[in-house]
Design a protein around this nucleic acid. Sequence first.
DNA 1: CTGCTTATTGACCCGATGGTCAGTAACACC
DNA 2: GGTGTTACTGACCATCGGGTCAATAAGCAG
Lengths: 212, 212
Amino acid sequence: MNAGPDAPQARRRLAPEARTPQILQAALEEFAERGYAGARMAAVAGRAGIAKGLIYHYFPSKDALFQATVHACTQPLFEEAERQLSGHAGSARELLGALVRMGYARISADQQERTLFRLIITEAERFPDLARFYREEMLARATAIARAVLRAGVAAGEFRPEVADMPGLAEVVLAPVLMASVWRMILGESDAPAPGVLRDAHLDLLLRGLSA
Amino acid sequence: MNAGPDAPQARRRLAPEARTPQILQAALEEFAERGYAGARMAAVAGRAGIAKGLIYHYFPSKDALFQATVHACTQPLFEEAERQLSGHAGSARELLGALVRMGYARISADQQERTLFRLIITEAERFPDLARFYREEMLARATAIARAVLRAGVAAGEFRPEVADMPGLAEVVLAPVLMASVWRMILGESDAPAPGVLRDAHLDLLLRGLSA
DNA sequence: CTGCTTATTGACCCGATGGTCAGTAACACC
DNA sequence: GGTGTTACTGACCATCGGGTCAATAAGCAG
């Protein structure tokens, strides 16, 4: 800024620890917007404000950059949910409600999560690593949380006993939240079913369907 | 050779009515496998067994070919469900069960439907036409069917009255089927949650959650 | 200030790919 | 068989985009 808002190029030397996340962020935006094949390395460089060649100083290929990009944005995804789960004291019904509400709130707010999800859907077939990553780090974690809530509800006598270990039920319970995200991707904020509306119907169906 | 199984090129002249669907089918395969940006016109021509130039005799650009491809494979999608709905005589619970079972069966069997769905998810942002098409011709039709079943169940006294007009409920009811399809896209047949397992849990939750 | 390390640039290479076009031959009609 | 229409080909063009590299300069140590 000190040299004007668009100083053409003040060549700025940064430590790799500072440059790398900058490139990854730019790459996430570009990949999200264009998909793998459509993304251009030159555009990534442009978004990061550097020359294209510099990317190859940090990543050997477009492929490697893509994988690093997806891996780089996964840590904080389930932290909040897992914290709520372990710290909760009230009824299982309340816990379920809080988690579902949190899910829909994230759908509405966090564009980065939708973006990441779409990237996985789009490219999983061509990057087997990505599919494995989704299965182990995302789907497995999410269903584990759902299953824990169901078991807690059964243990407390709030839910009917069959739901404690019904295979596939955890997936079915969280599917509507994920589909809300998909609809939002496809239709955009204005035309997709409203998250609040889906959330209320979802909770209503769940509480009636699970209760003892 | 000239009558062999791989006669190099027996130039065959076809009427446009015969050539067009052939090109569209080849394009669907190529777009499905590679996405819009990744698809190559030369590959489409190869799959169709014609020269690349001929495609431009029928479609002015890759863009136009893409839109035509998606539009061309939509008719038969909901016919079966709508037929079942209008012709059904038994209880609403049975009808719901039959429709849900049909949905999961299609997920398992029909690769073309998954393919089309992924194409829409992937490219909707860049082709607004596609988003509109999905909303009006697919989502709206599917929710209409679900709503009709819910209303029939309430009218017959099988479902509790609130579900007849709860906004968003139709979407929530069919979300697990669609997510089963998405999981199948991401994880492949071997690693995705088994459709049969999801179906049973889904039906159990629905019948308990909707019943009066 | 001097010199070393290395982050950074920008011009360049080259294969891939969307799109064009002049020529060719398959079919229909006489 | 002859003739016209047009489906069809294949060579070609221009551009785009991933990847390379020699030159450059920013920061640091002395």
